[in-house]
């Protein structure tokens, strides 16, 4: 029995036993290599679920809509390790009750999806811990290193060009599980901190504000990067912030459900390299 069959059965079992009211998973997409989220509410619909190496989106963001979890019932969700970390952050930020989230965990390796044992976010603590000790993605780091080699002026010019492409569609925000605010700062117009038109200055403001809002929260699921219609390498900005949080504050986003936000806490032995 393949993983898809196994998890379809599991989803059916969870739904028919009443353990969960909803299963959030992947279904067929518009093309053969694309998957789209599906929301399964009864056991006989579970055949719509697909699970293979194309299931890369982080579905944790679908847990957040107001009212979804307010009846106290549980929801099952298909998650890769990055998504499990997102659930931890959402729990730490009081957006979900982790007891109501049943995790159908899987990982993708070598073009294959394989199941991960455990159903509660806490079951995955050893996995997340080992990820932390491995460190951040080396591929991303290599890409980021290229930028680090540039002079400050060249790097600024690089981002200037990248951000000049931004059309302020906010797809990055819509896809991000961390962007759960009911009103985003860019939608505040009294006062209008961030320019709404897609001029480079306003584009800078938006992308940098978003990078800071994700500092210590981004799990590098890559959603924003894939969603961007003009191919701004958002992954590199977020990677840089994650690296900063990890190196300076030993903060690995989504380590546990009681992790404190990196920008709201301090320790007495924090490095204060920014104080000249």
């Amino acid at each position: 029995m393949g993983i898809q069959e196994q998890y379809r059965n599991e989803a059916a079992e969870l739904l028919s036993s009443g353990a969960v009211k909803l299963v959030i998973g992947y279904g067929e997409g518009s093309t053969s290599d694309r998957r789209r989220p599906v929301f399964i509410r009864s056991a006989d619909e579970t055949a719509r679920l697909v699970l293979d190496a194309n299931c890369i989106a982080n579905l944790s963001g679908y847990l957040v809509p107001e009212g979804l979890l307010s009846d106290g019932k549980s929801v099952a969700v298909f998650l890769k390790p990055d998504g499990i970390r997102s659930v931890n952050i959402l729990a730490a930020e009081a957006q979900v009750n982790p007891d109501q989230v049943v995790i159908l965990g899987f990982d993708i390796d070598g073009g294959q999806a394989s199941p991960l044992p455990g159903r509660k976010a806490t079951d995955f603590a050893p996995l997340i811990e080992s990820q932390k000790s491995t460190g951040l993605s080396t591929e991303l780091q290599q890409e980021a290193d290229q930028l680090e080699l540039m002079s400050a002026t060249d790097r600024f010019e690089y981002w200037n060009q990248q951000f000049s492409k931004c059309i302020k569609c906010y797809a990055c925000r819509q896809v991000c599980p961390m962007c759960y605010c009911r009103r985003c700062i860019v939608d505040v117009n009294q006062p209008q901190w961030v320019n709404t038109s897609s001029h480079t200055l306003g584009n800078f403001e938006w992308n940098i504000v978003r990078a800071f809002h994700l500092a210590g929260r981004c799990v590098a699921c890559g959603g924003c990067d894939r969603a961007c219609p003009v191919n701004i390498p958002l992954r590199l900005i977020n990677h840089r912030m994650s690296k900063e949080a990890l190196d300076a504050f030993d903060h690995f986003a989504g380590e546990s459900a009681d992790q404190k936000p990196v920008l709201a806490t301090f320790r007495q032995d924090d490095p204060e390299t920014f104080i000249l």
Partner: peptide, 13 residues
């Protein structure tokens, strides 16, 4: 209150 998302970052900070 209408826009507060209740993330408690403020309370921690």
């Amino acid at each position: 209150e209408s826009t507060c998302a209740g993330c408690w970052g403020c309370a921690t900070a």
